[in-house]
Nucleic acid binder design. Structure first.
Lengths: 324, 324
DNA sequence: ATGAAAGCGCTAACAG
DNA sequence: CTGTTAGCGCTTTCAT
């Protein structure tokens, strides 16, 4: 990489003259500017980012800690983050926690050395399970601004971007009841997540008369659901996560349920899974991309004003019913 | 963030003493080391990464340009990259090209200012379509090492990590023939990708008697495949990409094909889609994670020795047949 | 209109 | 064993 020093030497002017010329300073004569610009272009000069960062004491980089990159929901959030960051001339560094506390800590420490201006973070499942958020709140001491997205805790004081899980589940159950569905089953594989808890509460807030199937492992859910539908007539399923939705769908089909005529399945999701399932699953779309975009916006706002009070943005969900 | 300067001031020693003490230099007395370490811990001192980078003229960061983050295949590669990078104490910056030349160029220029030590890149679909790789080979002039993964071109001289697409397709068709399948259909939605071309050639190299359905849009493929199976008996499908596989599967089921008894479907894939399809699709697993890991390894090797000749690593595929 | 010098935070060669 | 100094590449203040 060519540097200001090299350019200045070749042009026989000082480094500062070259620097000023390149930033089109009024202090520099047109003639010199032309000369400098020409040579800079010839060598494809680009200011060394690291040096600029050191000088500016800012990196124009956002660190993202994401629990799981195989989950299409987070992938969409990441895409929203990346786009919004780029739009604001920020770079994005990614660290994947794989739902473990240890990787999450690693990621945080990875970012806590001036590599990033701020952090976007969705706590790992393990973190939520243990309820220990000290490694995250430690960012406050380090004065590294951060924004939580999707998952959060009352224990954590910070900006956050979330969806209205409680309301979404409640509204969906109400919708099912309105449609005349009477035997509603709620299935879930995300027992340990804060969002799972909220959705469950929302569903039960709409109706006490709900059967709950909540498990940690896919096979357990499969077994339980199969047993249930053999024993009892049901006509609606609300899946609190996409995987539960797909599993329920596939099992219902093996026992020849007509879907959605005999059995309505609605699933929280943002996935390819539901899109390419057969038949297409009805979903509660979580607008993942907007979650990502809003997280970036909140963080950039925070970077501009570190003293402002913490803000929460709630991204609305949309119920998408597929009749086919 | 606390700096060496601040520590040195509080301790009443010089900056370099603090620096040396923290790196456990033999030049420093045990007593001083203890004192320094204690204060450093108290303030949670971490060397400023940007300053270290400037000094070291290396960023310990890898830039990744990925065509599409919604494709599970690339997501897995990214995960492999991230893990292998972390294992070697490198950070990962991500830029998503969305299969467009313009975003790809943006990404490259984004990285070409000293932000990264090297680049990992899978060219966008548009780039492959246009056959113009100048913006990529320009990295050679800029002396930024890069490694291509998954997609590549003869026009590009570089390290690369690829799968043996030609052989995999060929072997799969042979497998089908061995199993007594006679009417084989090859379906594809990745006409414009170099890998699509290779897979197609491989399939035809195993048998000339193949029906080819190749389209750009999902609907076109759906229509054509439906028409075909109504007109003619077929007993095997090789899908060159996962989407084609799923679409074929869903259509075959609407017309009540028994799968895999009557119709074998095998698909190139690395997806959740095939895993949670019903019935489970048989797949040609591309070991995406290994592609990611190998890309990082090749790049790090290159960083150590910029003069070595270019290497190509071929990641083997595995045929995974599901009987259910 | 141009240049010299300082300083961002760090490391390391050199001096004492 | 500790300190001084230089320099990574850049921007900016302050001379000239």
């Amino acid at each position: 990489m060519v540097t200001l020093k090299q350019l200045s030497k070749e042009l026989g002017v000082s480094i500062s003259t070259v620097s000023k010329a390149l930033s089109d300073s009024f202090e520099i004569s047109e003639r010199t500017k032309k000369k400098v610009l020409a040579l800079a272009r010839k060598y494809n000069y680009r200011p060394n980012n690291v040096a600029v960062n050191l000088r500016a004491k800012s990196t124009k980089t956002i660190g993202v800690i994401i629990p799981n990159i195989f989950n299409h929901f987070y992938t969409k959030i990441l895409s929203g983050i990346e786009q919004e960051a780029k739009r604001n001339n920020y770079k994005v560094i990614v660290s994947i926690s794989n739902e473990t506390v240890s990787s999450e800590k690693e990621g945080i420490s990875f970012f806590s050395n001036g590599s990033v201006d701020g952090i976007l973070l969705a706590p790992s499942e393990e973190t939520e399970k243990l309820g220990n958020y000290k490694h995250i709140s430690a960012l406050h001491q380090k004065e590294i601004p951060f924004v939580l997205f999707d998952r959060y805790s009352e224990k954590l004081n910070s900006d956050k971007v979330i969806i209205n899980d409680f309301d979404s589940a409640k509204k969906t159950v109400k919708y099912l009841i309105n449609k005349g569905r009477e035997e509603i089953v709620v299935v879930s594989l995300i027992k340990h997540l804060s969002v799972g808890e909220l959705r469950k509460k929302g569903a039960f807030d709409a109706s006490k008369k709900i059967t709950l199937l909540e498990f940690e492992k896919e096979e357990e859910l499969e077994e339980a659901f199969l047993k249930l539908i053999k024993r009892k007539r049901i006509d609606a399923v609300l899946a609190l996560d996409e995987l539960s939705g797909i599993i329920t769908l596939n099992i219902a089909r093996t026992v020849a349920f007509r879907i959605p005529e005999e059995l309505t399945i609605i699933s929280f999701s943002q996935g390819v899974l539901s899109e390419y399932s057969y038949p297409k699953l009805s979903t509660i779309n979580q607008h993942a991309k907007e979650i990502g975009e809003n997280s970036v916006q909140l963080l950039l706002t925070r970077l501009k004003n570190k003293e402002a009070s913490y803000k929460t943005r709630i991204i609305k969900t949309a119920l998408e019913i597929h009749q086919t």
